[in-house]
Design a protein around this nucleic acid. Structure first.
Lengths: 345, 345
DNA sequence: CTTAGCACTCTCGCGCCACGAGTGCTAAGA
DNA sequence: TCTTAGCACTCGTGGCGCGAGAGTGCTAAG
């Protein structure tokens, strides 16, 4: 008997139970369930249904004389087929948009998105830093800093600028530096960095002079930085909100959770998995596969720029969260962030 | 009767008491104090001294039948005149140095310093980002991105590079951009950004053309960014270590503390105060003036580059911390960080 | 198939008590 | 005058028992 085989009544009761539990945070018993549900049933009948649901692993009771609590599976059935997501009012969307756009030009857009999520949901918000576009060389400039230090400035793609200090064995004349830059600009404009590098190595084989050595050093640094930039990372906000939930009132649990949030590795794996998904995705409780997220749920949505998904944002909180509210918020915020990124290209 | 007037015996006993409390974390009673101290006194005599110390506000007892616990003032007297700081063995210094230098060139030196502090002390480490040097213009470059977007690249001081996308009303020719850059480079090299800006405004009054408008836009952005960079900030590591201390086993306390750490404002004020101090500085308990730091101590030391103090680093933990160990660690780490900054200028 | 009734289980809060640790005070001793 | 033994007192802690309340599963009747 899978969730699809749940009869109308069982579905209705599971739905009510989850709603009650999310609202009150306490195990819900047969009597209060009888009152809360529209069904006109006695507590005794409800107990029978509950026994079925428990056997299916959708609910469980902390101890004999407590009510029932949804399991992760129970939540899953709930969000998959019982949840009625409220669409956001357009005025709410406007408010989110305004909060995200506050002080428009500042470069901490991701920060603000993360804070927005945590502020609105009263849980922790996270936003992965966008995947860098494939780095194409647009323009190079060399500048002598001192006798043996040269500053290399790389303009990549549209307007991303990277710069490296290169230590050189000897002093280069301005003319040499200009020549080197001209060479790169003339031959490799619009090429990928690794192609440029290969080209430089090639050139070095033919003319083995100091200038190509400089170029090689520059390309080494450029590629290294590029690789560094591909390190995934995320911006976290509102961690402290999590401390308000009774689920994390145990300092030990809290510590493990915070360590995982600070460590980032596991979370990033999880978030990377969401890059491919089209819309909102949920990890409820142990579904994530990470023990520390045992009584957490993660709600994510990918965000896109120029129609290409470049990152993920989301919210993390206790499994007992108001999914019908959080899901549309995460969804809309992802779209708003994408729009904001596009508008300031 | 100030601490200077404490007689030999009282000093000795206070020292022993603080040491015992730091070691065991429990109120220390007259009997165990009698055993621990070298003085050959009966518990009864010690109780008399304790009564004096309590009157002076150096110790207090949680309740009648508990031992005594040092107050913030007590810790203060302890660190000021009773503490014997262990100098670090040179091999320990080497180990710290190695850990700080791991994967040398990466730009996350502050991060590593912070993690180093937290790792070694098992508390939270923090490192303020360095105050930017006074921004002097070294070189400017303009690059056309598209019809109405120009990329301005500013090299400041030694090798700091900043870049801004300027939206322009009309399309500029390459020659114009070169001309504009040449103008700035020729007239304002080595000048402060605000001077440059003034000069540009001046020039605009005489020749009111589009190029000076471009320059003005560039300078606006440059100054704005500069102001943004002067926003103080710090890098925090090992927050979760704090959760291991029984002092913060109450989630409420913990939350307030973590909120303060995330909010940064108050902490930054406190850290800024340490910029002027020569060496290690301590804020014990309520000395900081911030209630959330009630049972925390902050140990800081300024770090310098080229002989100029540019930032502060430190460690935050419960007042009950091994000061004699933490103080030299913070001290040495500050010096190591300064050295590391200098060596990679 | 539903439901009233009932016995059962388990948690929670309360009061109680004994224990241990430590104190302050007093009075005797050096 | 300083030190210390002795003693009464205070207070937090942990264990125990008890009753109330909530909720369950089972059974039997409708």
């Amino acid at each position: 008997m899978s969730s699809g085989e749940l009869n109308e009544r069982a579905q209705q009761l599971l739905k009510t139970l989850v709603e009650c539990y999310i609202r009150d945070g306490q195990p819900v018993g047969s009597r209060s369930l009888a009152r809360s549900s529209d069904l006109d049933l006695s507590p005794a009948s409800i107990r029978n249904v509950m026994a079925d649901l428990e056997e299916l692993g959708l609910v469980s009771s902390p101890h004999t004389s407590a009510g029932r609590v949804p399991t992760a599976q129970g939540y899953r059935v709930f969000v998959n087929s019982l949840l009625s997501v409220q669409l956001l009012q357009s005025e709410e969307v406007q408010r989110l948009k305004r909060q995200l756009d506050v002080e428009g030009a500042r470069p901490d857009l991701l920060d603000r998105a993360s804070r927005l999520l945590s502020g609105v949901t009263h849980m922790a918000g996270l936003v992965t830093v966008p995947r860098p576009e494939q780095a194409l060389l647009r323009h190079v400039e060399f500048l002598r800093l001192s006798e043996n230090r040269v500053l290399a400035i790389f303009v990549l793609n549209d307007s991303a600028v990277q710069n490296y200090v290169i230590r050189t064995a000897r002093t280069f004349a301005d003319a040499e530096l200009t020549q080197a830059a001209n060479y790169l600009n003339a031959h490799f404009r619009g090429k990928r960095l690794d192609e440029v590098r290969r080209g430089v190595v090639e050139a070095m084989r033919e003319v083995k002079d100091n200038v190509t050595a400089l170029l090689q050093a520059a390309m080494d640094l450029a590629e290294e930085t590029q690789r560094g930039a591909e390190q995934r990372d995320y911006v976290l906000a509102g961690q402290t909100n999590l401390m308000n939930f009774s689920e994390f009132s145990n300092v030990g649990t809290l510590r493990h959770l915070f360590e995982a949030l600070a460590e980032k590795r596991d979370l990033l794996h999880l978030l990377d998995r969401c890059l491919e998904s089209k819309g909102v995705q949920l990890f409820i409780g142990d579904e994530s596969g990470y023990e520390v997220l045992g009584n957490c749920s993660l709600v994510t949505a990918p965000y896109a720029k120029d129609g290409k998904v470049i990152g993920v944002l989301g919210v993390i909180g206790p499994t007992r969260m108001a999914y019908e509210r959080v899901i549309p918020i995460v969804d809309v915020t992802a779209k708003l962030l994408g729009a904001a990124l596009n508008s300031r290209q």
